[in-house]
């Protein structure tokens, strides 16, 4: 299914990326999470929601990563990182 981008904000068009694209040491300002319902919910109760920031502490080649969110550390599989989009925070 292809969803048409309705937003034409410049920032979105230029910098939008998924967490999977982030390198070690980078931080993502989350704008959207689109994952399977149960997983999305589990992220939500951990405070990983649109508007939050996720910092990549470690990353492996296949995309599995260790992230920091709200002071806690989580191991996150590539499949989950792919569904988290946002813009790179400076």
């Amino acid at each position: 299914m292809i969803k048409k981008e309705t937003s034409n904000s410049k920032k979105d068009l230029i910098k939008k990326m998924t967490l999977l694209d982030c390198k070690t040491g980078e931080t993502l300002s989350v704008s959207e999470i689109r994952l399977e319902e149960a997983l999305q919910y589990r992220l939500q109760i951990l405070g990983i929601v649109p508007g939050s920031q996720v910092h990549v502490l470690h990353k492996k080649r296949r995309g599995a990563m260790v992230i920091r969110s709200r002071g806690a550390r989580y191991a996150l599989g590539a499949g989950a990182a792919k569904g988290i989009t946002g813009v790179k925070a400076l």
């Binding site: 550390r73 499949g79 989950a80």
Partner: peptide, 12 residues
């Protein structure tokens, strides 16, 4: 059936 991705807290 797709395998659910990893999500696990790492304690100090």
């Amino acid at each position: 059936e797709k395998q659910p991705p990893l999500l696990l807290e790492l304690p100090d």
